[in-house]
Design a protein around this nucleic acid. Structure first.
Lengths: 234, 234
DNA sequence: CATAATTTGTACGTATGTATC
DNA sequence: CGATACATACGTACAAATTAT
């Protein structure tokens, strides 16, 4: 691991284990330089990343202070599915494959994935059951040529893990849009809506490191099971 | 302005004006070093910030590539109200002050603002009218002692502008949570709900540079007028 | 109130490593 | 293989904000 990544990871661990508590000052740059035998630039890079991810706040002339209390991992920034987030909160999440098909891109799908019409796509519909209720419907479209070997068995587990660990492709960034929509037929069919007539839709355009888009996903959430949190900076 | 901020701003302008188009490579580090007579570290800092804000993607060995098409300013990251966002999209937004009161913090409010009970607060309820419909209800709680001199006239314009430009206080970061909620009485009273029985609530804990929280806000959006977009990174 | 010490911010320079072409 | 481009890491100097003396 890089030196700055090591420093970053160590301090994150200290915050998560509450060895560094909310409001407390972390070691100064010169202290970190000494304890890691690192240059100032290296130490600063680690601390900058801590701030970017919302762990700390740097204050000129004073020091660097912990923002988050440990363990209350609210971290929904980064590319993680909401299924993973719920699992991290210790909730029982099961997945049911509702649909798994090779299709040919129509006009709309071609535009959403930025590929020519009639490109081969894998469409997967998965229902997420949390604490006994069907509350999330994930509809994924993958460009078949970019993600070879997809099977329902893989979809039952983690597709991202397959892409990264088996295919060794680097997932890099996703453009996301959140909005509310009136329920569509699939929502009524697969979800326990309890009379609700809207869902929250998270639209996701996911890209590789080299800029190619390989996926478009709609994650459709029952209203009462949706939440999202982040830290915004001025 | 700093050197790295200048480089950053220039490249952002080039992207917004489409002089640099989506997918195109921006000048390499050594080219930027030459044209700005800057060190490599300075150039890299500017480019790192471009990537953080989602303008570009750096690829090792290849170059730095523009992600966003210009002008389609989707930027809802950062501390901006949804009112400001709508205005930037060229929509007619008007504000009506529904309530402006000095109150004493009850138990819940004290917790949300991290102050003792009975601390003096300014509570402001504002209704945002977009294209002729009342669609957003903002409920702000300010710690009165931290934001002196607030008036309905200021609330009619921009409170943040007052805080930053008149009081010269540095707004720094906000912890936000997004979720859907069933409508409360205030929603039914002030918003044109068109029969919808839920709203999207954005809860906002806003802090100064020195870490003090000065505000708690709930921004309550009619379902069909809510949207949010960002870029997530692995 | 002034000064010094501490701490973070900006900027420069250099060397070496790694990925892409 | 060499050229180009980004990644990591070292070092130095001075500026600016804060706190202690």
């Amino acid at each position: 691991m890089n030196k700055y990544s090591q420093i970053f990871a160590d301090i994150v661990a200290d915050i998560d284990n509450q060895r560094l508590q909310k409001g407390e000052r972390i070691p100064s740059e010169s202290e970190l330089m000494d304890s890691y035998a690192a240059s100032r630039g290296t130490v600063r890079k680690a601390v900058d990343q801590l701030q970017e991810r919302g762990y700390v706040q740097k204050i000129h002339g004073k020091g660097v202070f912990v923002l988050k209390p440990g363990n209350i991992e609210f971290q929904l920034s980064g590319i993680v599915s909401f299924k993973e987030s719920y699992e991290r909160l210790g909730r029982a999440v099961t997945t049911q494959i509702a649909d798994f098909q090779l299709i040919s891109a129509d006009k709309l799908q071609a535009k959403l994935l930025q590929v020519p019409e009639k490109t081969e796509l894998v469409r997967i519909k998965r229902v997420r059951n949390i604490d006994g209720e069907n509350v999330i419907l994930d509809i994924n479209y993958f460009v078949a040529g970019m993600i070879p070997g997809l099977t329902p068995q893989i979809a039952q587990n983690s597709i991202y893990e397959y892409i990264e660990k088996v295919l060794k492709l680097n997932i890099c960034y996703a453009q996301r849009v959140f909005e509310a929509q009136p329920c569509i037929e699939d929502d009524r069919r697969y979800l326990d809506l309890n009379g609700m007539d809207h869902v929250i839709v998270v639209k996701n355009h996911t890209h590789f490191y080299d800029g190619r888009q390989f996926e478009y996903t709609e994650s459709r959430h029952r209203l009462d099971k949706f939440f999202f949190s982040d830290i915004a900076r001025r």
